[in-house]
């Protein structure tokens, strides 16, 4: 087992098995890059048995809401979420995309009505779980996970 270069957290959430390079997006989508006061660690390109490489995000004293879990599943469907209490994993959650994704990611189509300042949130229908493919419920265009802007 490779040495981890960041120490364990006592309480909080570890988001593991994030596709390599997507760790920063996970932090952004959880809006933790600003205004999150506790310790936050991002490990990128860690060796993994399941994925060749993976990113890991560790957030001290952070509990994810259901909406936050759903938002992670849009950009990192392979991730697992570990709830940590007193240095131990007390719960492990596998992600599954909901049928609809609302207000999590913006529609990449600049001509979509959701990008024009109208009072309407981006809404996507999940048309494929793996690889993730979403269809905008407004402009009806389809997008792969990598095309989605955080």
């Amino acid at each position: 087992m490779p040495d981890l270069k960041v120490s364990k957290i006592s309480n909080g959430t570890v988001i593991d098995h994030i596709p390599p390079g997507r760790g920063l997006d996970v932090i952004k989508i959880l809006r933790m890059e600003r205004g999150f006061d506790n310790t936050l660690s991002l490990l990128m390109n860690v060796e993994s048995s399941r994925l060749e490489k993976k990113d890991i995000v560790k957030a001290e004293d952070k509990e994810l809401t259901k909406e936050e879990v759903d938002s992670v599943s849009v950009i990192a469907p392979s991730a697992t979420i570990n709830i940590i209490e007193d240095y131990g994993v007390v719960e492990k959650k596998r992600l599954r995309l909901p049928d609809k994704v609302e207000g999590v990611v913006d529609c990449p189509n600049p001509h979509c009505v959701t990008n024009t300042g109208e009072p309407v949130e981006a809404l996507f229908e999940v048309v494929n779980q793996n690889p993730v493919e979403l269809k905008c419920s407004y402009c009806e265009r389809k997008f792969k996970a990598l095309e989605l802007e955080i």
């Binding site: 189509n109 001509h111 979509c112 009505v113 959701t114 024009t116 109208e118 309407v120 905008c136 419920s137 407004y138 402009c139 009806e140 265009r141």
Partner: peptide
């Protein structure tokens, strides 16, 4: 009719 895609659906809602 609108130049923005998805406008009619938004209006219908």
């Amino acid at each position: 009719r609108s130049p923005y895609e998805g406008t009619a659906r938004m209006v219908a809602e």
